[in-house]
């Protein structure tokens, strides 16, 4: 639910990184914070618990400069992935404009990815949002681990598991090396801004 401030000529929107625990949501954001210094307009804020797990959320404010005379501001959040924080995830999703689903490529996390996607669908529904309608990007993270000989799922399998019905744009990534991190966010922002344009036209 972006905020259009006509007087200040400003559009503010909210992007949320979703996904199972330990899939790399916080690492994605840390990479953005380190790399896109020009676009980052404040500190990255995190509330962690034991073992670096996100407890409440991470937050990063970004600015994308001007589009058609409007200043584009983006609030980026990550949710805590551990199963027991379902209602926290719901709170973080409030007013979301675009979602990035960070899936874990490790074969041992296959089921967790699917459960988390279901949880996303459910929480969006609680706000009256259809998962098929909201700007959503799929990220297959931790691809770098293949080099260490670990059992990763193939992209085809992950697409079958997670993206067969959604058919949203997807990216391979390694949040640690930064591969695919920027591309994922850019695509999400593109879809999100596009959806505003549509809303404007119809509304």
């Amino acid at each position: 639910m972006a905020i259009f401030n006509i007087k200040k000529k400003e559009i503010e929107c909210k992007i949320v990184y979703y996904g199972p625990g330990r899939s790399g949501k916080t690492t994605n954001m840390e990479y953005l914070y380190k790399t896109y210094k020009k676009q980052v307009v404040g500190e990255m804020v995190s509330v962690d618990t034991e073992g670096d797990r996100t407890l409440f959320f991470d937050f990063l404010p970004m600015g994308l400069g001007q589009i058609k005379g409007f200043d584009i501001r983006v609030q980026v959040y990550t949710v805590p992935g551990q199963v027991q924080y379902s209602s926290t995830r719901k709170l973080v999703l409030k007013g979301v404009d675009g979602v990035i689903f960070v899936a874990d490529s490790l074969a041992v996390r296959r089921e967790k990815n699917m459960l988390s996607l279901k949880d996303l669908q459910h929480n969006l529904k609680e706000y009256g949002i259809n998962i098929l309608k909201i700007p959503l990007i799929m990220q297959h993270n931790k691809r770098d681990l293949a080099e260490q000989g670990l059992p990763l799922m193939s992209i085809e399998q992950m697409e079958r598991d997670l993206n067969r019905q959604l058919k949203v744009p997807s990216f391979s990534a390694s949040a640690i090396t930064g591969d695919g991190v920027g591309a994922t966010l850019k695509e999400c922002l593109k879809l999100t801004l596009l959806s505003f344009k549509k809303q404007f036209k119809s509304g």
Partner: peptide, 20 residues
């Protein structure tokens, strides 16, 4: 856990993100 006032403000801001 109890968190800083600044973080608490952020929580408020996060959930009140809505134009209408």
């Amino acid at each position: 856990p109890e968190i800083s006032g600044k973080m608490q403000d952020l929580i408020k801001k996060m959930v009140s993100f809505s134009p209408d």
